[in-house]
Amino acid sequence: MTTTAEKLVNVIQGDYVISNDPSTILTTVLGSCIAVCLFDATAKVGGMNHFLLPEGEGSDAGNVRYGANAMELLINGLLKKSAERHRLEAKIFGGAKMMGNLRNIGASNAAFAHQFLKDEGIRCLAESTGGTSARRIRFWPTTGLVRQLTVQGQIEQVAPVKPVAVPRQKQDDIVLF
């Protein structure tokens, strides 16, 4: 019997990672930021981005920390690794309101992600956005499996992930621990 060691790859703010390696797990911690997990189950390839704001202005607009660029780079990277656009499926995480007295950037980020996916014709299978807690996400890019923990203070708790009503939805896509 062969055992493969899992490789944990951290996706930092303003970055994205793509993998077709079954031993790779992509992980990140989110507050008001959004992580979109995209995968093609047939090609067994997926990726995750982690963006801070929906869109930038001026010369800074091309920065990966903005959703518009992070999404384009993630999609194009997946297509280069044999994914097909019509088979891409998404899961969205983050968008919490971390500071009560500031503008709700998390809600703006989540709304942007939903609109972007809708405009691109990419189905969103599940999401966990909003609230006031940070989230720790682990994503298996070759299968689409996602695990999520919420972080409240110093305590991590299991958090529910809300499936989005779509045709052909798989009930076992998300495992919580």
Rank of each mutant, 00 (worst) to 15 (best):
Leu125Trp: 15
Leu125His: 09
Leu125Val: 15
Ala126Arg: 01
Ala126Trp: 07
Ala126Cys: 09
Ala126Pro: 02
Glu127Lys: 00
Ser128Ile: 00
Thr129Ile: 05
Thr129Phe: 07
Gly130Asp: 04
Gly130Trp: 00
Gly131Gln: 01
Thr132Lys: 06
Thr132Tyr: 06
Ser133Glu: 14
Ala134Met: 09
Ala134Asn: 10
Ala134Pro: 03
Ala134Glu: 11
Arg135Asn: 04
Arg135Gln: 11
Arg136Gly: 05
Arg136Cys: 04
Arg136Tyr: 10
Arg136Ala: 08
Ile137Gly: 06
Ile137Phe: 11
Ile137Lys: 05
Ile137Trp: 07
Ile137His: 10
Arg138Lys: 13
Arg138Ala: 12
Arg138Trp: 13
Phe139Met: 02
Phe139Trp: 03
Phe139Gln: 02
Phe139Glu: 01
Trp140Cys: 09
Trp140Lys: 08
Pro141Ala: 08
Thr142Trp: 07
Thr143Leu: 09
Thr143Met: 09
Thr143Arg: 15
Gly144Ala: 05
Gly144Phe: 08
Gly144Arg: 07
Gly144Lys: 07
Leu145Tyr: 14
Leu145Gln: 11
Leu145Cys: 11
Val146Ser: 15
Val146Asn: 11
Arg147Lys: 06
Arg147Trp: 04
Arg147Phe: 03
Arg147Val: 13
Arg147Ser: 11
Gln148Gly: 12
Gln148Tyr: 04
Gln148Leu: 10
Leu149Ala: 10
Leu149Asp: 10
Thr150Gly: 01
Val151Tyr: 12
Val151Ser: 11
Val151Asn: 14
Gln152Cys: 09
Gln152Leu: 14
Gln152Pro: 02
Gln152Ile: 07
Gly153Ile: 00
Gly153Ser: 03
Gly153His: 01
Gly153Ala: 03
Gln154Lys: 12
Gln154Leu: 09
Gln154Asp: 15
Gln154Gly: 04
Gln154Val: 00
Gln154Phe: 11
Ile155Trp: 15
Ile155Ala: 15
Glu156Tyr: 04
Glu156Asp: 12
Glu156Ser: 08
Glu156Arg: 00
Gln157Tyr: 14
Gln157Cys: 08
Gln157Asn: 14
Val158Gly: 00
Val158Asp: 04
Val158His: 02
Ala159Trp: 08
Ala159Asp: 11
Ala159Ile: 08
Pro160Asp: 10
Val161His: 03
Lys162Ser: 12
Val164Cys: 05
Val164Gly: 03
Ala165Tyr: 09
Ala165Gly: 00
Val166Asn: 01
Val166Glu: 06
Val166Leu: 02
Pro167Thr: 05
Pro167Gly: 03
Pro167Lys: 00
Pro167Leu: 08
Arg168Asn: 12
Arg168Asp: 14
Arg168Ile: 12
Arg168Leu: 14
Arg168Tyr: 15
Gln169Asp: 00
Lys170Arg: 09
Gln171Ile: 06
Gln171Met: 03
Gln171His: 11
Gln171Glu: 12
Gln171Thr: 14
Gln171Arg: 11
Asp173Gln: 05
